[in-house]
Structure formats: C-alpha cells, structure tokens
Design a protein around this nucleic acid. Sequence first.
DNA 1: GCGTAACCGAGACGGTACGTCCGGTCTTAGT
DNA 2: ACTAAGACCGGACGTACCGTCTCGGTTACGC
Lengths: 202, 202, 202, 202
Amino acid sequence: MSSNCAPSATRLRRRSHHAIMGATLELVSEVGYPKLTIEAIAARAGVGKQTVYRWWPSKAAILRDAVVHLCQDATGVTRDIPDTGDLAADLKAVLRAAADTMSHPRYDLPARALAAAGIADATLGAELVSCILEPQLQLYVERLAAARRAGQVAEGIDLRVALELLTGPLAFRWLMGEAPLSHAYTDTLVDLALRGLAPRAA
Amino acid sequence: MSSNCAPSATRLRRRSHHAIMGATLELVSEVGYPKLTIEAIAARAGVGKQTVYRWWPSKAAILRDAVVHLCQDATGVTRDIPDTGDLAADLKAVLRAAADTMSHPRYDLPARALAAAGIADATLGAELVSCILEPQLQLYVERLAAARRAGQVAEGIDLRVALELLTGPLAFRWLMGEAPLSHAYTDTLVDLALRGLAPRAA
Amino acid sequence: MSSNCAPSATRLRRRSHHAIMGATLELVSEVGYPKLTIEAIAARAGVGKQTVYRWWPSKAAILRDAVVHLCQDATGVTRDIPDTGDLAADLKAVLRAAADTMSHPRYDLPARALAAAGIADATLGAELVSCILEPQLQLYVERLAAARRAGQVAEGIDLRVALELLTGPLAFRWLMGEAPLSHAYTDTLVDLALRGLAPRAA
Amino acid sequence: MSSNCAPSATRLRRRSHHAIMGATLELVSEVGYPKLTIEAIAARAGVGKQTVYRWWPSKAAILRDAVVHLCQDATGVTRDIPDTGDLAADLKAVLRAAADTMSHPRYDLPARALAAAGIADATLGAELVSCILEPQLQLYVERLAAARRAGQVAEGIDLRVALELLTGPLAFRWLMGEAPLSHAYTDTLVDLALRGLAPRAA
DNA sequence: GCGTAACCGAGACGGTACGTCCGGTCTTAGT
DNA sequence: ACTAAGACCGGACGTACCGTCTCGGTTACGC
C-alpha cells in the first residue's frame, strides 16, 4: 500500500516508529495540521529530529503513514462489502459503518487534516488517492458490477459515476463538517441513488 | 456576501486593496497555499506588511477575500439558476458552467487552496460555507422546490439531500483533482440524480 | 541658547508644547532613552505625531529641549558662582549644589539619557556641549581667573585644565552611577584640586 | 575578565563567534551604535540571526564582548602600571598610552558606543564597570598605595578619590570628544594631580 | 465677522528591524 | 552503526516604530 515510502524497515527501531506515529496523531488532533511541526513530533516522541527526517520526506508523509497506521489498527475504514444479494441493505450497512468511523474524533481529525493536505498538494493528493482511497472505492465498483449482473442496476451506466453518486455526497458532507453523518442520512442516500441506478421499470 | 468580514473600509486605499487581492491570487497559483507567505503578498503588492495585517487576521482570510473578489469580477460562480420548466436542462446548463469555472486554473488553484484551508480549520470552514457556498446552494434548493411544485420531484424528499446528490459528486471529483469535469460527466450526473428524485411512476 | 532650533514659536500651541516636554521627561524616566519612542511621546501628550515631527527633527532634539525646559523651570543647573574671596568655600558651595541636582532623579534620568545620546552621536554631543555645558563651564573659568588675579592660583596653569581637575571627576562619578555624589566627596575634590593649583609655597 | 558572560562555549563554532565579533566592530564603526542592528551583524558575519540570539541577549552585550575581544587582541587597554619609583613618570607613561589607545578610531568608536549604552542602561553600566573598568582602575589604586608607602603621597587621602583626580578629567575629555587627548594634556594632568596629592611640605 | 489658510488630532501608509519559531542540514556524544 | 540532542543557516512570522502622507475639524489672522 505504501511500502515504497513508509519506513517499516528493519533499521528504524520499532519503538521509535510507533512513538512517532502516536505523537503525530496526538498532535494533529491537538493543534491541527497547519500548526503541526516536525520539531514537536520529535520532541513528543522522545526522538531526535534527524530520526524523523531520515525516514520521512515531509510532514504530510508522516501524517499519511500515521493514518495508515491508525487504519491498520482499527480496521475501521478498509472493509469488505458484503454481498447478501440485497444491494440496498449491503450498501446501507457499509455506509453506516463508514459514516460512524468518519465521525469518530480519533479518525476524523487526522484524516481531515490529511485530506486537506492532499487537496492543496496535487502530488500528495494523487498518492493518497492511490494508496488509501482507490482500493476501497474499487470494492464498491465490484459490488455494483455484481449487482448489475444480477439485474439490479441498469445496463449502460458508468459504474464509476454510479459509485460517486453514493460516496460523493457522503464525502462532501464529511469535508464540510457541518451536518452530522447520521444513519438516516446514509440510508436516504442509498435509497435515492439506487432509484437512479435501477433499471427502467419498463 | 462577506460584507461583515472584508475590509471594504473607507480608509484602506482602493489601490492597495486591489493590489493585495491580485498579488494573493497570483502567488497562490504560482507557489501553492502552503508556500504562500504574507511577506511575499505584501512585497508583490508593493505594500507594507502592516497594511496587510491591519486588515486581515490571517493568510486564509486574505485568500478568502481574494476569491470573493475574483468571483465578483468574473460572476463565474454565483449565478442564478434558470427555470425554463425543464429541470434536467436547467441543471445541466448550470452544472456545465460550474464545472467549466472550477476547471479554469484562474479559479481552480485559489479555490482549491481555500477549500483545503477550510477543511483543516473548522472555523474558517464554517465561514466559507456561510459566505460563499451556502448562498449558491440555496439557489439549487429553490429551483428543486419549484420543480417539486411542478410535480417533477417526488414529495417527501429532503431537498437538501437531493441537492447533495447533484453537487456532492461534482465537488468530490473536483477536490480529488484526478478526473476531468467534463460536460458528459455533469450531464450523466443530472440524469442519474433526477431519476432518483423523480416521482414513482405510479 | 537653543533659539535656533527650539519651537518656541507663536504657532505651536503653548499647551501642546508643554505637554510634549512633560511627556518626554516622564517617558524617558520610565523606560529609558533607547525605548523612548516618538509615538509614545505623541500619545502621552495627546498630540498627533505630525505635531511632533513638525517641530523637532529627532528624538534627541526633543529630549534636549525637554531638559533645557526642565533646567529653566528649576534653575538648578546653570547658576552663578559666588565670589566671596574664599575660592575653596565658593567652589565647595557650588559643587555641592551641582552634585545635589545631578543626584535628583527628576534631573538625573533625563540628563543621563541625553548625555549618553550625546556621547554616541558626535553632532548632538557638540550641540549639547555648546548649548548646555560650555556656558556653565565658562563661569568656572572666570571664577578661577579671578582667583589667579588674587594670587590664589599659580601662574602658568591652563585654567581649562584646572577646571577639568574639578569637574572631570565629578562628571565621571555621575556617569558611572555607582558611587554617591556626597558633599564630603565634592569637598575633598575641591581640597585636593586646589592644593594642586595653589602657588608654590616658596 | 568576562568569562562569566561571554559565550566562550564549546558549542558555538569558533569561526562564527569570531565572525560575529568582527562584524560587530566593523559595523559599529561604520554606522554607529544606534544604527547597529542585529540583522546586519548576522548578515555580515554570514550567520543566522538565531545564532546571535542564542548566545547574546542584546545588542549591547554583543558589543561588550566585541570590545573585550578587541582588547584581548590588542592588549591596548588593560596594562600593568610600572613602578620605577618615580610616580610621576610612571603615571605619565601609562596615561599617555591610555590616551593614545582611546584616540585610535579602532578602539574609540566601539568603546564610545559601548560607554554611551552603559550610561543609558544602569544594568549594563554596572556590568561594564565591573568587567572592564574596575580591574584597570584597581591597578592605579595599587600603584598609588605603593607611592604612599614610599612617602610620595600624603597620608589620609582616599586613594579612590586620588585616582579619580587623574582618570576623571581624562575620561571626561574623551567622552566629550572635543579636545584632543595629547601627551601634553596627560602630563599636565599628572603634574597638577600629584601636586594635590603630595605630602605637606612640613 | 468672515473667509481662508495654517495647524491640529488621528491614524493609514510603505518600510525596517525586532525577537521568535521552525525547516531542513550537520556535528557531537553516547550507547 | 545508529541514536538523542541540539547548534547551524535561512527565512517567515506577527509586532513596534519609523518618518510621510492624507483626512476632517478647529483656530485665528487678514481682509
């Protein structure tokens, strides 16, 4: 996933690595991404600055790995999408779970900061999309493809667009940070979107 | 729109104000938001640093006003939504225009930087939403309400959610910055969303 | 004395002038010369900055006039030297008075600041010497000349050097600001110096 | 001499330290103390501002160390006072040397600036006196004490006052900066002062 | 006694330097 | 060999004043 850049190496002491990830997540929650400094991360982790610079090229990269680290711990984001045959129920279940995860401060603050950094910096953004976002979205596409084979989705619909009909509004609400990501909201979203995707009632 | 926060004062020289807005837009396009510095803005605008600090509390606030300034010049973002009776056509027209504006570098780079700042900083985010985003979104809600009265949208649908079904995916694609915002895409979006919103073929 | 540079004009409101002088003396006593700012003087005096800049070219010039202003009020510095025929007694009296004046905070702080400015800036220093110091020193030279005519001082002595034998040590002690300027000290100074100046007991 | 306050640390690079001292002396001679800025010192020395601020608390402290640095190089100020038995000759020799040093621009400009700063700021003044001035003056007191034991100076004279009779006028002339510090002047000073100090021709 | 011109307070302006903070590199000691 | 510690150069931060420049408003002088 990020094997090309993450330390994960034999040489970086496991303890230091863990401390840096933890300190980064703590600090970004406390002071926000713009005021997050590498000096503070090193100090909080009880580590020399050079130890940080040796393994990560930038503040954003540290946070990226820290969020990946967090996800691997919690397995709260990347999850398989069930296929019970009932597309609506399956999507509602997985979107409810996603909304809950994104609402939890432990995940919300760092991920939001990381998303902001990715939006501002195209390079980082592409990296985040390919490392974190795309694998997850691909699972949705696959589930929708299965549904189409089952006749639950109209032919001729670009599944990528269909996917965005579901995830776009949720992501948008999350980034806006104004309205809550309630289960009622995600359920409504699934209902409306699936109605749009359904084959003509011909 | 943002009369409560912009300087707009009698005392700030019109020339300086304009120069600061212009320099900000130029610089954010050239070096990006994180490397945008107030010193550089002041220098590029041929203005003392204090003149910037006197009127704006932060880099983000300058950029916010600069973007508002840009919008007022171009009238490219806040635009009325026509009501020809054909909801799909009306929405396609306005979404095409919005996509074009958001694709143009002159608007894209500053707005993306501003959006990123707003996502990272909740206070600024709320301000941006209420100053820039909300007024525009409200126009969509009104157009959808008119359509519902005309029987083109099912009763019992939360128009706010309906709105997000249209704008969420577009905003998401824009923020991801990967796929192009083509007219074909926005048209498809309108078609799928409206199918979801349409009254049951009772 | 400083008629060439002081405002003293008909146009500068008497009240503003007085307020500026007072504010300057207050502030220099409170924060010291280096931290004395023209903005603070204007603010304390309830006067626009331009009113200060209109009449004085520099911080030093304001302080110079303020000290002159202070001296004219107190007549504590420029004073005639009595001639009772007893040179030692006359000098002791006048040196005691000078020491007392220089010890008084009201005079000490501004004058010390002004002296420091004069030492650092040769131009100001020459001005201070010719405007303030020289007239006073000249009185000593005249008294010493009278004493020489009376046979109390040896012929062939440069009266200027003789004068410095008296005033130099006192000024030095004052500038050092360590030892107190006691009457015992000034008396001793007069005794030792006059012994050096006395005609040979041949 | 000032080992308690100078950086002298192991960590401050020798090269940077030397460059800062040199740049300070150059700049204070070029533009004077009031226009001496820490930014300019750092720039001239090819050093980051923080490296200056890390080791010195103020402009005055830098200059103080620079002057001490200068003195140690030149050994032009702190010098022993010879004791040939001829008090007058010894004092004349040492005062001539002191006058020459104080007249030399390389020493005069920085030292004058430092003296001015010390006069304006009591804390710095006390520091300068105890670090630089007092050790030198003490040598004079010791020489005078030896002379008194040899019967060349009257009993009952406060040697501290006697010392000031010599150095006070010289320092005063130097600070006034008007009259030159000629050898004739210092010789006359010694003659007059010693006449005042001599034992009564009983 | 009435215009008008200088002076007033206030404070914004383009600047310079302040002293602090942090970025990213390099050096030093100590495991 | 790799670490924690931290000094190094550079450069932006936000603040304080500099000396200049408009602003209206108020004297007070000359007609």
